[in-house]
């Protein structure tokens, strides 16, 4: 177990360095310089280069960069908020992004489990067919299309929820975005839970439990559920990936001041520093989530641990 966890952590660290290297190279390759102001003279530009440390050799700059990034100094914004520390901007916005993600994950897990378990218990009935259709649609329709539909019909036409994020009602105005984001996790969890549950219900030990005369409800709650839920963790990885990709566009659609919308602003205003800092924050979150999922999975299912160790 220790060996497995150490290996996972080492790979995560290597990934982090790889990302930093790529980000650093991209910074150098970015078209144009952030100082495209025609009013600046040569000397002023040179002074700016010194100020931002752009005049040192590449290797030294890379290590300085790594040190800065890891210590939380993400540089300063060039365009969105001139000379403002990006770490400050990120700090203000990280919480709300995580809140939306967590709400989406919560909705997705709850609805997904309900859908998956009911369709497994009523296997091959109309409920089962209906929930299969719902989950195929949920897997197929991109989250931002759901977001647009919800924004148009529920927020704009029916006026049940605010269209744009409202600072005075944070949780209330985050419900629609979280719902839109939760569609794909819900569908994935429902599909997976259904097929796992059907497997478990047709296994020998469930027949044994039934033959012992234990009531159905108790049998499902204590015996079937446990063995269904464990493998569901395996789909958490891909689900979190989708969540991350979807969240930035959804933040933009609903005007949520989170990391994703900051990154899109950075792209649209050519503020490379901000874009790269956001990409870095996303990567760190992603790596941490993946590490947790991997370790959890190893703890729960020894077979995975062993087969990964053998590799």
């Amino acid at each position: 177990m220790k060996k497995y966890i150490t290996k996972r952590i080492l790979i995560s660290i290597a990934t982090l360095f790889f990302i930093l290297l790529v980000l650093f190279i991209l910074m150098d390759l970015m078209p144009g310089s952030p100082f495209n102001d025609e009013k600046l003279s040569e000397a002023q530009i040179a002074a700016l280069y010194v100020k931002y440390g752009l005049d040192k050799p590449v290797v030294i700059r890379f290590f300085l960069y790594v040190k800065n990034m890891l210590s939380g100094d993400l540089g300063v914004s060039y365009a969105i908020n001139k000379n403002f520390a990006i770490s400050q901007m990120v700090k203000e916005r990280l919480g709300i992004s995580i809140l939306v993600g967590a709400m989406a994950m919560g909705f997705g897990t709850i609805f997904g489990l309900i859908l998956g378990i009911t369709s497994a218990l009523k296997h091959n009935s109309w409920i089962d067919n209906l929930s299969s259709i719902i989950s195929v649609i949920g897997v197929s329709v991109p989250s931002y299309v759901c977001a647009m539909l919800l924004a148009y019909f529920i927020a704009f036409k029916l006026k049940l929820f605010p269209v744009l994020y409202n600072k005075s009602l944070p949780v209330f105005s985050l419900i629609l975005p979280a719902l839109a984001l939760s569609v794909s996790p819900m569908a994935n969890i429902a599909r997976f839970t259904r097929s796992e549950m059907i497997d478990v219900l047709s296994s020998d030990y469930i027949s044994l439990v039934q033959s012992m005369g234990i009531k159905d409800n108790k049998m499902i709650a204590t015996h079937a559920m446990r063995n269904t839920l464990i493998p569901v963790i395996t789909v958490m990885g891909p689900i979190l990936v989708n969540l991350l990709t979807g969240s930035s566009v959804i933040e933009k659609i609903f005007g949520i001041p989170g990391i994703g919308s900051l990154m899109i602003n950075g792209i649209q205003m050519n503020d490379y520093n901000v874009t790269i800092a956001c990409a870095f924050v996303y990567s760190v979150m992603y790596i941490i989530m993946m590490l947790i999922v991997d370790i959890l999975y190893g703890v729960i299912d020894p077979r995975i641990r062993i087969s990964k160790e053998e590799k």
Binding site: T15, F18, I19, A279, Y286, I287, M290
Partner: peptide, 8 residues
């Protein structure tokens, strides 16, 4: 490489 989010 797989540890790098596709989004990024």
């Amino acid at each position: 490489l797989n540890g790098v989010p596709t989004l990024v």
